[in-house]
Write a protein that binds this DNA or RNA. Structure first.
Length: 829
RNA sequence: GCGAGCGUGGCGGAAUGGCAGACGCGCUAGAUUCAGGAUCUAGUGGGAAAAACUCCCGUGGAGGUUCAAAUCCUCUCGCUCGCACCA
């Protein structure tokens, strides 16, 4: 008998599948399609366990659904633009293009060793001109539709990465990639108008029934919609000037005792001009603007404010209140100015306390007396309005509406919705990205590059001299161009696009990856989209997943795609840990997929990763567990080898594959049970760990049967059927071993081109069942009875048991509960 | 602070109202061996028993609903993640 040698069989079948073009997926509208997609990787050159996990999950689904008759598209590609390539290029003195190319080759080899069933003819690379040409096209589409604009604004600058970042790419005031503190800088940059899709991005979350709740909640929080009112206050000392505030609590307008502006507020310089505070205020504002977001907005940071010397007039009460400027008000939300209501807002309360600003209670909590004396905190709940003139006595919810309506009549306020979401800043001051296809002409101004002139090619990287790859403004031949409109002298835009734009449409490119005339073929996209199952890390809950939804909606509005949402189902896979910590070089707890493939084979690695935890949960790596999975595969191998001779021999006399005895019925039951469980666990519940345990049980049952039945009595046709089912069930998890076993047992064609097995409900039926007997809910006995026994029969049999009758002696039976084929519960006193 | 999720043997995990601990790891004892990354058999939540097909306890904790709760409800503790001066 030959031993199980994955090093020999795995490359053999990988070559075979590739040569036979097994996983090519032609458009075939006669069959139901299924789009399985794993988030494409950044080509770092090193495949890690997280990658192996996400690909293994995707491959199980792809292989399973193929066997179930779906036309499955399962593509792979490279999110190839981006900063790490530049950093590596700097470190290794090679061009980012060269570095990226090498890494892709290396990573692809690593992926192929895992035996993942990708259609490699659909491979895309976002850094290739054939691809980024259409990323640029997408930008122009946005521009045409008024969704791309250039604006001077305070933006997040990462000093380490030497580029600006979108809000989504700043986490707690730090760069999402390098964790440097970001700074605020005034710059003129390109933005995409994602805010005009805010409501749709929010409302359509409801369509995503098969997305994890936490991802939807994160997007919802990120969009941060709040309904309220915008209210104008006139400035007492400067007639004609007004300050607008946004508030969700218009009902507290009579409780306003001061007003606060953000340091960046555009009115501020004018407001303080000529006052004795002018110099101090402007210095303060300048200092705040320079401060990082962390210093500015952390909760521990004290609220610092200064009086401007000016006053605002409350539009309803006519009262004049001081205007201050303070660090805790941010320009980018609402209007950059807030009304201070210390009695009913936590932050205002704190601020008022430290600056001795007055409090005025205008909302009375339900069920309380009007408070005398000082308040010891802000009451932020709802209640009855007091001290609010004509609005006294109204509920705060009612008052909110009435006050806003009144302000509207007076022309100094209206209902308003504010969002936390800001427009998507896409300019990057880096080399390795898709150039923004815009030209600046002295005569014509901003001119988009005509579509026929795309792609705007990235010039070959200049030699690296300092600590960065020279940016596009360093290439005169790139910068200097002619205006597409008037033909005059013009300069190109030298910023590149955020790589998240490249990745926000790649799933469409897979549907027609080689098309030269459009980003994607509408018919192909119409057939394949949406992605039925998307799998990736939770870190993209807001970033990539929000951007891709936005871009899809824009394409939908342009009539180019038929779906409003790109991803029907989302699986956020858990992380891979070892020794209780995330695998990382610094902790020295890294296990690489290559290592595992070399030592145990890809099948073992895949099986372990899927068996150790359900896909959405974090996974604890265990070397012992891997060995256990390897042991299991060897058990399968031995079974195949031991049965090979038996099955090829002529059947014994009289063996007809008939019913056989109890042992045969038992094996048959386990087999059909395993088919049922694996089918449901992969197809409905995504619980691969329990699916694998069912396959293990089938193997255990096969060993049992062979051990406990004399060889000449073993039912060969049943064994053959059981082994066949076993290999079919194993095919999605351990594709190489399943294929090898399939051929060794002489089955035709390939295990991966077989229909998925069906279970026979009749084979699952048992003749006898064990029923539990409970007294007062406690198990007091068991009995074996014919399946399907009636309630009366069950009760009678239970009461007849000596132990049961003994326990019931002298007791009054209050109630009897019978669950057929399961249990009898007798309630007695 | 707000939001989401999680808490079950020595470990990874099963069980979504009906026998808690499937499957795997580890461990214990035995068998076997052409010494292999072996294999096979039996056992393995805790305690009391030691004749048991016996009893008690047990799913972070406390209460509740129910004939019956890991599962549903209320409170509470702990951990993880996300957001966090968003007006």
């Amino acid at each position: 008998m030959q031993g199980y040698d994955p090093q020999e069989i795995e490359p053999k079948w990988q070559r075979f599948w590739e040569e036979e073009k097994f996983y090519r997926t032609p458009l075939d509208s006669s069959r139901p399609k299924y789009y399985v997609l794993e988030m494409f990787p950044y080509p770092s050159g090193k495949l890690h366990m997280g990658h192996m996990r996400v690909y293994s999950i995707g491959d199980v689904l792809a292989r399973f659904l193929r066997m179930r008759g779906y036309n499955v598209i399962h593509p792979m590609g490279w999110d190839a633009f981006g900063l790490p390539a530049e950093n590596a290029a700097i470190a290794n003195r090679v061009s980012p293009a060269e570095w990226t190319e090498q890494n892709i080759a290396q990573m692809k080899r690593q992926q192929q060793r895992l035996g993942i069933s990708y259609d490699w003819e659909r491979e895309v690379n976002t850094s290739s001109p054939d691809y980024y040409r259409w990323t640029q096209w997408l930008f122009l589409l946005m521009y045409r539709r008024g969704l791309a604009y250039k604006k001077r604004a305070a933006v997040n600058w990462c000093p380490h990465c030497q580029t600006v970042l979108a809000n989504e790419q700043v986490e707690g005031g730090r760069c999402w990639r390098c964790e440097s503190e970001v700074e605020q800088q005034e710059r003129e940059q390109w933005f995409l108008c994602i805010t005009s899709y805010a409501d749709r991005l929010l409302n359509d979350l409801a369509l995503l029934e098969d997305w994890p709740e936490r991802v939807k909640v994160m997007q919802q929080n990120w969009i941060g919609r709040s309904e309220g009112a915008e209210i104008s206050f006139r400035v007492k000392e400067l007639p004609g000037e007004e300050i607008r505030v946004f508030t969700t609590r218009a009902d507290t307008l009579f409780g306003v005792t001061y007003m606060v502006l953000a340091p960046e507020h555009p009115l501020l310089p004018k407001l303080v001009r000529g006052t004795k505070q002018e110099k101090e205020i402007l210095e303060f504002a300048a200092r705040m603007k320079r401060a990082s977001e962390i210093e500015r907005t952390s909760e521990e940071a004290p609220k610092i404010g200064l009086f401007t010397g000016r006053h605002a007039i409350n539009p309803l009460s006519g009262e004049a209140v001081p205007i201050l400027v303070a660090n805790y008000v941010i320009m980018t939300y609402g209007t950059g100015a807030v009304m201070g209501v210390p009695a009913h807002d936590e932050r205002d309360y704190q601020f008022a306390r430290s600056y001795n600003l007055p409090l005025r209670q205008v909302i009375q909590p339900p069920g309380t007396e009007p408070a005398g004396g000082a308040l010891d905190g802000a009451y932020t709940g709802e209640g009855i309005m007091i001290n609010s003139g004509e609005f006294n006595g109204l509920s705060s919810t009612e008052g909110r509406r009435r006050i806003t309506e009144k302000l509207r009549e007076m022309g100094c306020g209206d209902f308003k919705v504010a969002y936390r979401l800001r427009d998507w800043l896409i300019s990057r001051q880096r080399y390795w990205g898709a150039p923004i296809p815009i030209v600046y002409c002295d005569r014509c101004g901003i001119v988009p590059v005509p579509e026929k002139d795309l792609p705007v090619l990235l010039p070959p990287a200049a030699e690296i001299t300092g600590d960065r790859v020279p940016t596009l403004d360093q290439y005169p031949s790139f910068v200097n161009t002619s205006c597409p409109r008037c033909g005059g002298k013009a300069r190109r835009e030298t910023d590149t696009m955020d790589t998240f734009i490249c990745s926000s449409w790649y799933f469409l490119r897979y549907t027609s990856p080689h098309l030269a005339t459009a980003p994607f073929d509408r018919e192909a996209a119409g057939y394949w989209m949406p992605v039925d199952q998307y799998i990736g890390g939770i870190e993209h809950a807001v970033l990539h997943l929000l951007y891709a939804r936005f871009v899809t909606k824009v394409l939908y509005d342009a009539g180019l795609v038929k779906v409003q949402e790109p991803f029907s189902r989302l699986l956020a896979q858990g992380m891979v840990y070892k020794d209780g910590a995330k695998m990382s070089k610094s902790k020295g707890n890294v296990v690489s997929p290559d290592e595992i493939v070399e030592r145990y084979g890809a099948d073992t690695g895949r099986l372990f990763i899927l068996f150790a935890a359900p896909p959405e949960k974090d996974l604890e790596w265990s070397d012992r567990g891997v060995e256990g999975c390897h042991r299991f595969l060897r058990r399968v191998w031995r079974l195949v080898e031991e049965c090979r001779g038996l099955l090829s021999a002529a059947p014994h006399d009289g063996e007809s594959g008939g019913k056989g005895g109890a042992a045969e019925a038992g094996l048959r039951r386990v087999m059909h049970g395993a088919i049922k469980k694996v089918t449901e666990d992969i197809g409905e519940r995504f619980n691969f760990n329990t699916a694998i345990s069912a396959v293990m049980e089938l193997v255990n049952a096969l060993y049992d049967y062979r051990q406990n039945t004399a060889p000449e009595k073993q039912d060969r046709s049943l064994l053959r059927e059981a082994l066949r089912s076993l290999l079919l069930l194993l095919a999605p998890f351990a594709p190489h071993l399943a294929e090898e076993g399939w051929h060794r047992l002489g089955f035709p064609d390939s295990v991966h081109r077989q229909p998925w097995p069906e279970y026979d409900p009749a084979a699952l039926a048992v003749e006898e069942v064990e029923v539990v007997i409970q007294i007062n809910g406690k198990v007091r006995g068991r009995m074996t009875v014919p399946a399907g026994s009636s309630q009366e029969e069950l009760l009678k049999a239970a009461r007849q048991q000596p132990r049961i009758s003994e326990l019931l002696e002298g007791k009054e039976i209050v109630r009897q509960v019978i669950v057929p084929d399961k249990l009898v519960n007798i309630v007695a006193r």
